[in-house]
């Protein structure tokens, strides 16, 4: 439904425009709407239109996931802080594959980025069925293979 996509893109762009604009007079606002529409059209021409449906349920599921991710980031940051300042013998780099065969593109992106965002684990390759990660220690690799993060992401995007 391209019209819906255009409309959502223009609304989102205009919200950002209003946030950074600071000058609210009618001709300026008209110019703003026109430039937002132009950008939406250019983006539509430039990129492959994404195949996903808009799922508004994500709007409340994703922030809940972020809260969990924030806590996870605190824990792993402190672990890596110790590793970085400690002796190099504590490192045991490990490469682990994570099965992601059932995931949608959105879930794959979310999981890959979340893995990179928590220090100590790093996404180095993604194909359609699995995510290859580089981990700083064996323990971090074991945590990742435990699959807590994959399950959380699957709960955010169940398809």
């Amino acid at each position: 439904m391209p019209l819906m996509r255009y409309l959502l893109a223009i609304i989102a762009l205009f919200a950002v425009w209003l946030l950074w604009g600071g000058l609210y007079k009618t001709p300026v606002l008209q110019l703003g709407i026109a430039s937002c529409a132009l950008v939406a059209w250019l983006t539509h021409r430039m990129a492959l239109p994404d195949q996903q449906e808009h799922r508004f349920a994500l709007l409340y599921r994703v922030p809940r996931y972020w809260l969990w991710l924030l806590w996870e980031m605190v824990v792993t940051n402190i672990q890596v802080l110790r590793l970085v300042l400690g002796p190099k013998s504590a490192l045991s780099p490990t490469i682990v594959d994570i099965d992601a065969a059932a995931s949608s593109k959105f879930a794959l992106t979310l999981l890959g980025n979340s893995i990179t965002l928590t220090p100590g684990t790093l996404t180095i390759n993604i194909d359609d069925t699995r995510i290859t990660t580089h981990c700083l220690t064996r323990a971090a690799a074991e945590d990742l293979r435990g699959g807590a993060m994959s399950r959380r992401v699957a709960a955010v995007d169940p398809d």
């Binding site: 490192l91 045991s92 780099p93 490990t94 490469i95 682990v96 594959d97 994570i98 099965d99 992601a100 065969a101 059932a102 890959g112 980025n113 990179t116 790093l122 996404t123 180095i124 390759n125 993604i126 699995r130 290859t132 580089h134 064996r138 690799a141 293979r145 435990g146 699959g147 994959s150």
Partner: peptide, 28 residues
């Protein structure tokens, strides 16, 4: 990710790595 993936594809190998991914039953 773009950086790490570009390095991996160019053939830059990680040092001192143990690979545990060959296990047949990787938990999802």
């Amino acid at each position: 990710y773009a950086l790490a993936n570009a390095a991996l594809l160019s053939g830059l190998r990680p040092e001192g790595v143990e690979k545990t991914s060959t296990d047949p039953e990787t938990p999802a």
